[in-house]
């Protein structure tokens, strides 16, 4: 197991709580940087293919880092997919023990600033949790 069971339970709690109280978040998924799913939460009966999206999120995060590097931009934080139905944001969480990718799916009509602010809050929650 990549993370202790207690940490994964805590991660699930955070994901479920965030998708429950924030209407603009449709789904949150946390996976390792090499594409293994850790936990996922969605609301309003939404369903994403968690294993597949985990691999895609890892690829996307990996490409984001490489594109940034090739464009002389260091330390990429993640990437954004803009769609007519809302934003998809992916961000990296690096710790000494494990590298993770958080993917957030945001509802249609949510402003970019709000989605990014919200997403960064989620990232910080996981960073704090993993640090502790």
């Amino acid at each position: 197991m990549i993370l202790p069971a207690a940490t994964i339970e805590k991660i699930k709690e955070i994901l479920n709580y965030s998708t429950d109280i924030r209407d603009e978040i449709e789904s949150l998924l946390l996976c390792t940087s090499d594409g293994h799913e850790i936990a996922c939460a969605s609301y309003r009966g939404l369903k994403i293919e968690e294993a597949k999206v985990s691999a895609m999120a890892a690829s996307f995060a990996g490409l984001s880092l490489t594109i940034a590097d090739c464009c002389n931009k260091q330390d990429a934080l993640g990437g954004i997919v803009e769609t007519k139905d809302g934003l998809i944001i992916c961000g990296l969480i690096k710790t000494p023990e494990v590298d993770l990718v958080l993917l957030g799916v945001f509802a249609k009509g949510v402003q970019h600033g709000l989605a990014l602010w919200n997403f960064r809050n989620q990232l910080n929650k996981f960073r704090s949790l993993l640090k502790s």
Binding site: S33, D34, H36, A58, A61, G62, T66, D99
Partner: peptide, 23 residues
């Protein structure tokens, strides 16, 4: 070469430190 390497968390598959995640 351009690589998209990430930390390998699945040591049961292979012991190497990093793995390609996109291309």
């Amino acid at each position: 070469p351009v690589a998209t390497e990430a930390r390998n968390h699945d040591k049961t598959m292979h012991v190497k430190a990093t793995t390609t995640v996109a291309m």
